[in-house]
Amino acid sequence: MKQTKIIMGMPITIEIVDRNATPDDLTEIFDYFFRVDKKFSPFKKNSEVSRINNHMVSITEVSPEMRQILDMCDKTKKETQGYFDPYHNGKFDPSGIVKGWSIKNASEKLKEKGYKNFYIEAGGDIQVFGKNQKGEKWRVGIRNPFNKKEVIKVIFLTDGGVATSGEYERGEHIYNPHSKTIQKEIVSITVVSSNILNADRFATAAFVMGNKGITFLEKQKNLEGYMINSKGVATFTSGFERFNK
């Protein structure tokens, strides 16, 4: 059972391979994404993020979910030496973490319902579990940053998260908070981790670092990366090849 809906300004696809999958369960997960969008969208006037930015709610009296996101933002900022920064021009925008966080939560909801083989993909960020329709590992392609119709790498996964940050994505998120510039060395970086939240938050930060991003990922435990530079050369971490089959 597979369905796609446009939420948070991007297509979200859920595929459940398990035969006992019900449309109601899919709807419940999509509804969760709608609620996340309502709460965290910086573009919606009444979202909690907008109310924080408009000083209608104090940072000390936010909802428990917002507290989780704020804590995760702080943690990520420290772990990435400030390269991840949810504040842009004085406005709080946690989008760089909310996507991965919501995919992770949605995946956990499906697992609680007893599903073992499925994936959730939102705007190019993916969490897979178990096996695909053919009973094989999920085959995740990395899109060619120079041509969206092409896939330039196939990685094989059973349980894991894949996030790609790139030039084509979220133009306002890719600027370096340290140098206040936009790096031009690399065009895309893909991060593979056991969960999509970690993959997403480190992909955002590693991309901003430019060439140093892949060295940064190499130093992290449980993270592998595949970086493509402006000349079409890919550099990947020492453990990345284990996803080749």
Partner: peptide, 16 residues
């Protein structure tokens, strides 16, 4: 060097 792949995939990761 990156190269277009012909293999079929289930899902694609990439920036929009």
């Amino acid at each position: 060097a990156i190269q277009a792949q012909k293999a079929q995939v289930d899902i694609v990761s990439g920036a929009t």
